[in-house]
Design a protein around this nucleic acid. Structure first.
Length: 855
RNA sequence: GGGCGGUUAGCUCAGCGGUAGAGCACCGGCUUUACACGCCGGCUGUCACAGGUUCGAUCCCUGUACCGCCCACCA
């Protein structure tokens, strides 16, 4: 470092342009380039959340990514080599939807690839059908554009990412890791396929996982229906899904319910379709709900699935994957009816219709037949939705791939306890989720833009696909797309032919890939040397809304694959809320474009606001705080200009006030370091900011006169040296928060980046400075006197140019002794001609006598 | 229904056993040669409510209310 050169201080320092200037300089200088020669102990590795590129950029991103960057810059300055890659999540449904709308296309997997395809300039009114490979090409093309916009924003915000280490969740590397990970689970028996009832979105026409569900309140109605018994007495049940009546396979009541105990083991006839179904007992039936007896349909909700499984009931499925009622022939096996002809004529009136239409019609029919008692009773209840979906989920039986999770429950809870959470209480959400897992993780999706299952299946002589014997590729071939790649020993002509093969048509849940981001960035199965240096990683930063998805699935995958945690620490950010305390999101129309904010308040100003929102805390969007941050950054520039503007003479730090100020700063350094070590970035900036502002308003004012030479060369030399030492420390304490302003000042004065400078320590401030216990008291006494004297001047409304000709300081003798050390500085700072000491017991007080105003 | 977090100055929040704090806002003053994107000073609080522990509670315990969030098998 070249600290002795004369600082080059601009006349009018300003924040404008610093973002552009320094992001380019950092890029050219490779300031944040990861040095992979460092050992595991020297490295701090971060598993950055890859933002969904097809989503819009919003202030919530800026908020949480700033938190991570503050930690990254802090660790880097502490001497850790920070491994800080950036990913783009371009895999999955959001991208598919965006591509469909942007280009006006839709994917038809039956079409062949067209190598020369170009999308129309304007999206056509009627969506254009294109092949899956063509669709994926468009996905990739559009996400490239989105990624550029994101990177631009991140660089402008000042994220200290190594931009040579980016990845996308759909790129070949991620696909390969994702497919290897899947094949490992398959080999260990931890992944399996099953033909089973699965949560299904009828609009997207895909299976979804438990983690992607959300409850929404919907209006519904209880319909009271009469089921006939052979003895002529009717049983009344209540249902909100009358359209599922044809799918009814049993009635169920609680085993202890005396009202229905006589019915257990008997049969009843369903209304309209006259299907004979048993009355059964099961503990899940709630005597207080409805009439206390329920109809079991295949399938109306998850409880139906439980009953169906535990009571060994048959399947009578009526809902098709597209959400319409399938055609049924009553009287055929599985569709028994006492009166098949009338059942058929009634059912034909709802077959092929949507769920909503079928419901309306079936209620009319029930009325006509007198099978409905009274009017439907409106209720509001929670209904399960796919989080991205518009209509309630159905349960459809289909072949899907699963990863075993439920039998890992205890081990996953234990992993959660090994993980260090910030804040601690976020662990509870994880445990709630793990304890509430109701089934294994369904990872197959009937979609197009995603990582395909790296599998084919043999097709037998009759042309039927044999799913029980998947054909697995060599790991060396991965990634593959079974819809275009051909398994070893087969030819393309055998695709979907008898005695040939058939590719798995599905893609994986995006979380099946995202759960491996720490493996993807760490070079798992690609770069063993790198992997050993960065994995398990140090930090997973993320927001709390995806604990059940991203965090959970990542812990699961690392546990199953490596028998370890994926990282040691999880730092959880809150949300950004609008003034009504609602989460800001695009759908609510309350999003603020982040780039305009960065330009208006400066990246440092916006970062300041973000950093004040501590770990886990939802934080209100507050432009006022951004302005405060901007002022802090400007203050840094101006105070630095003042301090560095005159560094001569420079000498030993002898003045008690100077030494006390530095000693006090050493305490702040310790406290700030502790806070940042505990990921308390909000508390840390509070500490530094408050002290820095006091340093400017009190200390600078206090020593200004002495520094200009009022008390001779030695006093000036001491002040200059103390000012410069303190400034160097403050800049470094602020550097993680205000990377642009601090770097700018550092460059006036030192060589190299402040972001590679070493974090300040207590020792650096106290070595060579003789500090007695009394010194801290000296500085606080000086501040007390300064405040008191200023108050007198303010009360008298006297401008500073009017001198105080005499100030009488009354205090206990022990404290008055300290005046000797600060007398001259104090008199200069408040313009006091004479200080008179008045020893006496009691509180400090000052009486002043003003002189005449100068002409 | 279960759980987690919160309730402190007009607003946003910090404090978490010992005389209530910061910033913003507001009011008054200051052209003081680093900064008017500034400086100085001032005003503002039954620390949600009710009990308990303690010499002492905003802070610990137990309830209650309200706000936000997470989870839940929602006939």
């Amino acid at each position: 470092m070249d600290d002795t050169a004369q600082p080059r201080v601009p006349d009018k320092p300003a924040l404008e342009g610093l973002e552009t200037k320094w992001q380019h300089r950092w890029d050219e200088d490779g300031t944040f380039k990861f040095d992979r020669s460092k050992s595991r102990q020297q490295i701090f590795s971060i598993d950055t959340p890859p933002p969904t590129v097809s989503g819009s950029l919003h202030i919530g991103h800026v908020f949480s990514y700033t938190h991570t960057d503050v930690i990254a810059r802090f660790q880097r300055m502490r001497g850790r080599e920070v491994f800080y890659p950036m990913g783009w999540d371009d895999n999955g449904l959001p991208t598919e939807r965006r591509v469909q709308n942007y280009y006006g296309v839709r994917c038809d997997p039956s079409l062949p690839y067209d190598p020369g395809f170009e999308p129309p300039a304007q999206p056509p009114k009627q969506p254009l059908s294109i092949s899956r490979p063509n669709f994926i090409e468009l996905c990739e093309r559009l996400t490239k554009e989105d990624e550029k916009a994101f990177e631009h924003l991140w660089r402008y915000l000042g994220l200290s990412v190594d931009w040579s280490m980016t990845y996308a969740t759909i790129d070949r590397r991620s696909q390969r890791v994702s497919q290897i990970g899947f094949l490992h689970l398959l080999k260990k028996g931890l992944a399996y396929q099953l033909e089973a009832p699965t949560l299904w979105d009828i609009d997207f026409r895909t299976a979804v996982a438990q983690a992607e569900l959300e409850d929404r309140e919907r209006e519904g109605a209880y319909h009271r229906l009469r089921f006939d018994r052979s003895n002529g007495v009717a049983v009344e049940i209540e249902t909100t899904r009358p359209e599922l009546l044809p799918a009814c396979v049993a009635l169920v009541a609680h085993p202890d319910d005396v009202r229905y105990q006589p019915l257990f083991g008997t049969d009843v006839l369903t209304p309209l379709f006259r299907s004979r179904v048993p009355v059964l007992a099961h503990a899940l039936a709630d005597p207080d709900k409805g009439s206390g007896i329920a109809m079991i349909c295949t399938f109306g909700d998850i409880t139906d699935v439980t009953w169906w499984r535990e009571l060994s009931l048959p399947v009578r499925a009526v809902i098709q994957p597209n959400g319409t009622l399938r055609p049924v022939t009553w009287g055929e096996p599985g569709w028994a009816s006492e009166e098949p002809a009338s059942a058929q004529s009634l059912y034909d009136q709802i077959a092929g219709q949507s769920i909503a239409k079928a419901r309306t019609r079936i209620v009319e029919l029930l009325r006509e037949q007198g099978a409905m008692i009274g009017e439907p009773r409106p209720i509001v209840h929670n209904v399960k939705f796919f989080e991205k979906g518009d209509r309630p989920l159905e349960i459809i039986t289909s072949r899907q791939w699963f990863i075993k999770t439920v039998d890992q429950r205890a081990a996953l809870i234990e992993r959660g306890r090994q993980l260090q959470w910030y804040p601690e209480y976020m662990r509870v959400r994880y445990e709630n989720w793990v304890n509430g897992l109701s089934g294994d993780w369904c990872i197959s999706r009937q979609r197009f833009f995603g990582v395909p299952f790296p599998l084919w299946y043999p097709v037998n002589g009759a042309g039927l696909v044999d799913y029980s014997r998947p054909i697995v590729p060599d790991e060396g071939r991965l990634p593959i797309d079974p819809s275009t790649d051909v398994p070893d020993g087969y030819r393309e002509e055998q695709r979907n032919r008898p005695n040939g093969f058939s590719g798995d048509p599905d893609v994986m849940d995006t979380w099946a890939t995202s759960s491996l981001t720490s493996q993807i960035v760490s070079g798992w199965c690609r770069d063993d040397d790198l992997f050993a240096r960065v994995f398990p990683m140090d930090l997973r930063p993320q927001a709390h809304d995806i604990i059940r998805t991203w965090l959970f699935s990542s812990v699961l995958r690392a546990h199953l694959e490596h028998n370890s945690l994926p990282w040691h620490h999880a730092a959880i950010s809150g949300f950004v809320t609008d003034p009504d305390r609602k989460k800001m999101s695009k759908s609510k129309g309350n999003v603020v474009t982040p780039f305009a904010l960065l330009e208006e308040h400066g990246s440092d100003g916006v970062r300041y606001w973000a950093a004040k929102g501590g770990p886990g805390v939802d934080t209100m969007f507050d432009a006022g705080q951004m302005k405060v941050g901007r002022r802090l950054a400007i203050k840094v520039l101006n105070a630095s200009k003042f301090i560095l503007g005159k560094s001569d003479p420079l000498g030993p730090i002898t003045a008690p006030v100077d030494r006390a100020m530095l000693h006090n700063l050493a305490v702040i350094v310790e406290q700030t370091t502790q806070a940042l070590d505990a990921y308390e970035y909000g508390r840390a900036i509070d500490l530094v900011e408050r002290e820095f502002w006091g340093f400017c308003d009190d200390y600078l004012e206090f020593v200004k006169g002495r520094r200009y030479g009022d008390q001779g060369s030695a006093g000036s030399a001491s002040a200059n040296a103390a000012l410069i030492a303190a400034l160097g420390v403050y800049l470094r304490l602020l550097a993680p928060y205000l990377p642009f302003a601090t770097e700018e000042v550092w460059s006036w004065w030192k060589s190299g980046s402040i972001h590679r400078a070493s974090w300040p320590t207590r020792q650096e401030l106290t070595v060579g400075i003789e500090v007695g216990d009394s010194d801290l008291t000296t500085w606080s006494y000086a501040r007390e006197l300064l405040a008191e004297a200023r108050k007198r001047r303010s009360e008298a409304k006297q401008p500073l140019k009017v001198p105080i000709i005499n100030a009488v300081i009354s205090d206990v003798p022990e404290r008055l002794q300290m005046l000797d050390a600060i007398d001259a500085d104090l008199r200069a700072a408040v313009r006091i001609d004479v200080l008179t000491r008045n020893p006496r017991p009691g509180e400090l007080s000052i009486e002043v006598e003003f002189g005449a105003a100068p002409a």
